[in-house]
Design a protein around this nucleic acid. Sequence first.
DNA 1: ATGAAAGCGCTAACAT
DNA 2: ATGTTAGCGCTTTCAT
Lengths: 354, 354
Amino acid sequence: MHCELRTMTDSVKAGPPGIGQTTLADVAALAGVSTSAVSRTFTPGASVAKKTRALVLDAAKNLGYRPNAIARTLSTRKSRIIGVVVSYLHNQFYPTVIERLSQLLQAHGYHVLLFINSDTSSSDEEMDALLPDILQYQVDGIVLASTMMSSKLATHCRSVGIPVVLFNRVAPVKEASTVTSDNYEGGRLAAQILLERGARRIGFISGLEDSSTTQDRERGFLDELTRHHKRLFARISGEYDFTLARAATCEIFHRSKRPDALFVANDHMAFAVIDALRIDCGLDVPKDVQVVGFDNVPQAAWGGYQLTTIEQDSEQMARATVAILLKHIESGIAVPQRVVTPVRAIMRATTLSI
Amino acid sequence: MHCELRTMTDSVKAGPPGIGQTTLADVAALAGVSTSAVSRTFTPGASVAKKTRALVLDAAKNLGYRPNAIARTLSTRKSRIIGVVVSYLHNQFYPTVIERLSQLLQAHGYHVLLFINSDTSSSDEEMDALLPDILQYQVDGIVLASTMMSSKLATHCRSVGIPVVLFNRVAPVKEASTVTSDNYEGGRLAAQILLERGARRIGFISGLEDSSTTQDRERGFLDELTRHHKRLFARISGEYDFTLARAATCEIFHRSKRPDALFVANDHMAFAVIDALRIDCGLDVPKDVQVVGFDNVPQAAWGGYQLTTIEQDSEQMARATVAILLKHIESGIAVPQRVVTPVRAIMRATTLSI
DNA sequence: ATGAAAGCGCTAACAT
DNA sequence: ATGTTAGCGCTTTCAT
């Protein structure tokens, strides 16, 4: 007998009151088949007779049936949810990435659960507090695009068997995959650009000192300077923050001997640096001071700045991230990968033309 | 007897292999109590003896137990997930809002499932296709911050009994709550600013024609002009798009008689408009043309633009949204609310000083 | 191809 | 205060 425990009363009136979603059982009852038949109908590669399928589909439509992803998750242990952790969204690079990530994931039937980890000076404890939160949702994978993060985090995730991709940062953890651009090469390019244009007193505005991005960019930058027998003239940290970068710039330029060129660890700070130069110091960019940024966020192309910068290919980085994630999830095997996407110089108006 | 069906083998080795999360039952077994005792221990307002609680907590820690939010959701019918739908993240207003929304929600134990609905000319069909996706996850509430949306959508959500907040847009649906700023008043303010500064030939660059924001802003703007016996000199649509706005501006300024002031429906387009004016048309802002934007996104304060604009208080809007959502969710009652937050003029350098 | 039944991990009466 | 026992909605053997 198809005597369901659950009455169909609330499902039948699929209208306004709406409480009590219609379930598989409701559909099965209406179609006069078993719940498994209904389940199979909604499972891509299952064997269902055409007739049964039609019956089910019809009943489902009449009832306005919507599969419950939560119940499915409990059963299959696949949530089709990817946790994405970011620190803040002020720097347009991240919104851009999130947008692409979300689109690509959506196209594969996955969705993004967003975690913002923006407490200032977010340290290991911070991050560790977020972990239980994100793990509770049984996410199928995690993208860590947070500026800082606990090394424990990645380790722990892996121990739970969840694929993790470190986005735009590497960590002293061998267990997680990473996707970064070629920050070292980008730093070298920045140096070359400035050197070629006759810069003599070259400064560097760093990002967060602990971040791998700022470290790699600086290494590449310094190595290239050294190769040309040049030394860094000034260095100060902007901590990837707009306000701090502006203040830092003012500080440097209030000294007696000033830089005539600046490599700024990311575009977001570069805008602040240019503002400081032009407004606070009354200097001309690029005549008095040349500036090179990093990222090529949309605003770098805006008329108000026209920033020469090193482009990170966010599109390619997002694709790589999704590819790694899906491969790990679908194959079950988790060989940590390290993808490094190429960078390229985008010449605009904050550097002199040759 | 505490004879669990499930062996504890995989839970005990809580290390690397990590498959087979430890469950409530595992903890109960180790602690020598029932599963309900464990459940209660992890439920804020439950009655558990101190001793039992300690026992459970201890066992849980030893096993590295993490509650499974999915299972809890299935049982309680509360996912503590809020679906947030946005069209795109190019306009910094949205990242700013998402960040705040996410933080506030996180503080209340809720999380954001992000949906990007960025297919160009996203119409009703678009939006309707997203709905099943989002509903499947049994979200407790929905924030619709998408530029366009099907009126069916809001209606449907309500029919399912899910609280919906229309963010920064109103719709011809009475069932959903809305949170907007006072767009009409903002439009009036913009007109006043321009009028006070002697603008004679005033133009308007609109956003998406179907959006309530652009409509309300324009109405307020026009009403105020009328009140001063002034007429609109030019009008063209920028569809809230950077590139289109730039092109639209060029088009207007290639005509023989040019505007001497422009109200642009949002900041994002205003930046493009200023670029067009300065770069493509060789005009001075504000001397030749004054410009007023809308939103007060972070970049409006940047030195490269220093845009005079009408501020939408994203913080307050986010707070209102979360308040409405939580109230509906927690009380179960769903009286649609309409919150309108005040706007204010931010005077900067794209308008003349008086 | 289909159905019966046993879970997935947790919560919530209900009983004690 | 604690344990027992039904589910929550779906998937998945295992029979048939």
